[in-house]
Write a protein that binds this DNA or RNA. Structure first.
Length: 908
RNA sequence: GGGCGCAUAGCUCAGCGGUAGAGCGCUGCUCUUACAAAGCAGAUGUCGGCGGUUCAAAUCCGUCUGUGCCCACCA
């Protein structure tokens, strides 16, 4: 016999030696029941065989397309457009699973559902990737020239985009492919131009020279949030400026910028330096004289209380310079290289720093050094290069009024943020926003629609305007920040600025599902642009923020750390459903999601369980044909599972509405596996074997329960449920099946669907008895399959109808005339008397009973104390008191039972 | 420097005022005719420390310690 192994490396080999092809047999063969025709389902679920074809069938049938002319209520979620920089990682798989589950459910609920697909050109990120490709060929973008380079990026986009949509198909994303958009599509570019022009005309876009964050490697400006601050080791040097009484010591970490100093600043109230304010002192190495100014910004407690002021290379200094009318003297070029000043010219900023410190030291100007000195330094979020504050002319969005509206929309409750704790972060951002630098000195992106004329004219060109032509006119060479276009995504994808039927139908979006990491980058921008462009209608009503995917130890996934996972590998090994279910099961709102391969295996096992349970049901003639039998024709077991089913339907709905993916997945997992596939199926086996009307009723109930359960599971595990549901019901597709509502049992109508508390209690008791006897068997070392003669005394209980099922589950055989019990187990009012043929292990049993007795006595003591506490009796709610009384009674019963068992133990 | 979280079983996390839970892992038994990717049984926790509120605290409040994230113009 061959040892079977799962397909992919890393998958655990199957442990069994007993895998063999099994013919499907039908357990009713000894009865008059006709054999049921059973479709050929293999004994193991192999996702690879079904997933691919299913997805393509769904797409071909147009299930995922959205009709803007539909009468159904709309439900819209836009994909957070992945960057076309490569392929999707597990974080995307996670996000897509959540969105797909939400949209699949709404589609089943009868909404006109649009899951809008598309991708982001991701300006700087993509340009960097392609530049790196070029570098491998020994070329730079400048060798190609702008036009050819952009052409090259488009090629890259096509490849990368193909990969991404391939991954999305594999994952099962039910997106409206015919509506796929790209931020640099013609239509979306028109949207960009339209909004730019409108903002420009409203004076919310302007051009100004300011200190910006400059990346000397990417050679472009970036916005404040594209800067990542980290603590770097630097060196704080104190330098004496001036001579003798007219000298002042400044502390700096950026000695090289002193070449561009145009003042020294001190606090206005600082008496130490009061005599120097208004005078000029000599700036070392340069021979220049610079003024000493008084400015509130200076912290007299820090360092020497005196600051060198370099307006061209520091944002604070720039402000000081502006207040005091200082000159902006730039000494670094766009690559961070010293531009002038004799001996230092041509050195890059870091070389220049040590060279200048060396020169100053030689001059005796360095009075103190602190090394290392840890301070926060900004880095380019794309290439990690240290940011250089640089004075330059850029385009800006004046965010004040836009951000105000974006904040108010949440404050006024027009937009809700889940989880709510994230609101404070959002407010902290939108309420303290600086103007947004939107121009980038890149080639890949939307070119700024502004033309400059020969005589200094500046013309912003709208989408319907003719661009100025003629001698001396040229377009701005910069492109827009990539977030400018993605900020329009909720409506630009629908055809805006045209007032299309799609805009009418699908704007605003229903929910935005995205990671908390881009709350500022993307979400806030969409809010600002959406409210502005759509006359105050926010882009969505709800923002559901999810966490970041982490590895099984909670560590951030990253390529450099080596724990990043390609979702395709796991999907190949375990199936898409398994990956999806694992991700959904970890999705607590706003919280990071750890995921490990072992857990995916667990989910794969669950898929297999669903598969086999359905297979079993089909073999036993489970059916969805015809009405459910009336309540009085149903066994307690049937009523119990239907009652539980209805609870689960309600719970799952509530969890969906609250974006509690982990809860809903877990609820379904336990209901399906423990209750339906385990207890219900096991308890029903004897019924099926016996045949007759009871079996017919159970077949119908099992069919119903499975039908509903598969539909409930479908949004999270679409593939396996599709195969099984269509087989079970003969329906066209579960994708377009109705989302379950509470099951109604004829003759037992109740608001909210059928419930039966008595049946639930009854089955709980059955479970209790079975578990207790199994424990006894296990403790006695009886093998699971070993049959034991036993008498089941169920008088005084309502369990008589379950006797056959219980005997079967417990492997109890009928007793003869000469039956003598060697063990007697009273539990839940029933008594199981077993004949272990004298083999009972008295000591093991006594040990177990002693332990149980101790536990019961402790419980009795606790509950008795509680019920004897007057304060408790006076203040606790009746419900709680009742619970304690029940516990006390149970403890007393346990003690009585255990004492009886001990007494019944044979003496050695 | 501000703000927000988190500390619960070996690991990853639920629970957030009334008997400590899940998944995975661990131990033992088993081909039990849907499923060994399974079944059954079992072990494991002073719910970070210290105070307080309460009849009752993992759960609320204070505080300490550890840890994570976000924001900020510390030269």
């Amino acid at each position: 016999m061959t040892l079977l192994t799962a397909g992919a490396s890393g998958a655990k080999p199957i442990r069994s030696r007993y895998i063999r092809a099994r013919t499907l047999s039908v357990v009713t063969e000894n009865t008059q029941q006709p054999k049921h025709s059973v479709p050929e389902l293999p004994t193991q679920y192999t996702p690879a065989d079904v997933e691919g074809p299913l997805y393509e069938r769904w797409v071909e049938r147009g299930y995922f397309e959205a009709d803007e002319k539909s009468e159904k209520p709309p439900y819209t979620i836009v994909i957070p457009p992945p960057n076309v920089t490569g392929s999707l990682h597990l974080g995307h798989a996670f996000e897509h699973t959540l969105i797909d589950a939400l949209t699949r459910r709404k589609r089943m609920q009868g909404y006109e559902t649009l899951w809008q697909p598309g991708m982001d050109h991701a300006g700087i990120a993509t340009q960097n990737v392609v530049e790196r490709e070029l570098a491998k060929e020994g070329a730079s973008r400048h060798d190609l020239g702008r036009e050819a380079f952009v052409e090259r990026v488009w090629q890259w986009k096509d490849e990368s985009g193909g990969q991404i949509s391939g991954q999305m198909r594999r994952l099962g994303d039910g997106v409206a492919w015919s509506r796929e958009r790209f931020t640099m599509d013609e239509g979306l570019s028109k949207a960009v131009q339209t909004i730019f022009k409108r903002l420009y005309d409203d004076e919310l876009i302007y051009r100004a020279e300011r200190i910006i964050n400059w990346c000397p490697r990417c050679l472009t400006a970036i916005s404040d949030i594209e800067v990542e601050y980290q603590d770097d080791d630097g060196e704080l040097v104190s330098i004496r400026y001036g001579e003798g009484d007219a000298s002042i010591v400044v502390a700096t970490t950026r000695a090289e910028t002193m070449l561009g100093d145009t003042a020294v600043a001190v606090h206005p109230d600082d008496e130490r330096y009061a005599h120097l304010v208004g005078t000029e002192i000599e700036l070392p190495l340069t021979g220049r004289s610079i003024p000493v100014v008084a400015d509130e910004h200076v912290d007299p407690e820090f360092g020497t209380g005196a600051v060198k002021v370099t307006p061209a290379h520091d944002p604070n200094d720039f402000e000081i310079g502006r207040r005091h009318g200082l000159a902006n003297l730039a000494v670094l070029d766009e690559r961070g290289v010293i531009t002038a000043h004799g001996p230092f010219q041509g050195l890059d900023r870091f070389e220049a720093r040590s060279a200048i410190v060396g020169a100053l030291r030689a001059d005796g100007r360095i009075v103190a050094e602190k090394r290392p000195y840890t301070h926060s330094v900004g880095h380019c979020s794309r290439c990690k290069t240290t940011i250089e504050p640089r004075l330059s002319m850029q385009w800006w969005v004046k965010v004040g009024p836009l951000a105000k509206a974006a904040g108010d929309a949440v404050r006024d409750g027009k937009v809700a943020i889940h989880p709510k704790e994230m609101e404070s972060r959002y407010f902290g951002w939108v309420d303290n926003l600086h103007d947004w630098c939107i121009s980038r000195q890149l080639w890949w992106g939307h070119r700024i629609p502004v033309w400059y004329g020969p005589n200094g004219e500046v013309v912003c060109v709208g989408p319907d305007d003719e661009a100025p032509t003629g001698e001396g006119w040229h377009q701005d060479t910069d492109v827009l920040d990539t977030w400018f276009s993605s900020g329009l995504w909720p409506f630009s994808t629908l055809g805006w600025p045209e007032q299309t039927p799609s805009v009418e139908k699908f704007y605003p979006n229903s929910v935005l599902v995205t990671g908390y990491d881009i709350l500022f980058f993307w979400v806030a921008r969409m809010m600002m642009f959406g409210l502005y462009a759509m006359d105050g209608t926010p882009p969505f009503h709800t923002i559901a923020l999810h966490g970041m995917v982490r590895d099984q130890f909670g560590k951030k996934m990253s390529k450099s750390f080596g724990n990043a996972v390609n979702p395709l590998d796991w999907m190949d090994a375990y199936g898409s459903d398994a990956v999806r279910f694992t991700l959904a099961r970890g999705a607590n709102p706003g919280v990071d999601v750890p995921i490990g391969e072992d857990w995916v295996q667990g989910s794969r096992n669950f898929a297999n369980k669903i598969w086999n349970a359905t297979r079993f049901a089909l073999m036993n003639g489970a059916t969805v044909e015809g009405e459910l039998p009336p309540a009085d024709a149903l066994s307690a077991t049937d009523r119990w599972i239907l009652s539980r089913l209805n609870s689960v339907v309600a719970e799952v709905d509530a969890y969906y509405d609250d974006y509690q993916f982990a809860k809903l997945s877990d609820t379904l997992f336990h209901f399906a596996w423990d209750e339906v596939f385990d207890w219900y199926v096991e308890l029903s086996k004897t019924t099926f074997m016996a045949g007759g009307p009871a079996a017919d009723a159970s077949r119908r109930v099992l069919g119903e329960v499975l039908d509903v359960t598969l539909r409930l599971l479908h949004p999270v595990v679409p593939f396996v449920t599709e195969t099984l549901w269509t087989t079970l019901t003969g329906g066209e597709s579960v994708v377009i099946a109705e989302w379950p509502t509470a099951v109604v049992v004829p003759g037992a109508d109740a608001p909210g669907g059928f419930r039966d508390a008595a049946a639930e209690r009854e089955i709980e008791t059955v479970q209790q008895v079975v578990t207790e006897v199994r424990r006894f068997r296990s403790d006695q070392g009886l093998q699971p399959g070993q049959k034991v003669p036993a008498r089941l005394d169920l008088t005084g209980t309502a369990l008589a109808p379950h006797e056959a099922a219980m005997r079967s589950l417990l492997r109890l055989t009928p007793t003869g005339e000469d039956f003598t019990a060697t063990a007697s187990l009273p539990v839940a009012g029933a008594t199981v008397a077993l004949d272990l043929s004298g083999a009972i292990d008295v000591e093991a049993e006594r040990k177990r009973l002693t332990k149980d007795l101790a536990a019961a006595e402790k419980e009795l003591a606790q509950t008795t104390a509680k019920l004897g506490n007057e304060a408790f009796l006076a203040k606790a709610p009746e419900q709680v008191k009742e619970k304690i009384r029940t516990r006390k009674a149970a403890a007393e019963a346990d003690i009585e039972r255990i004492t009886a068992q001990v007494a019944a133990l044979p003496t050695a």
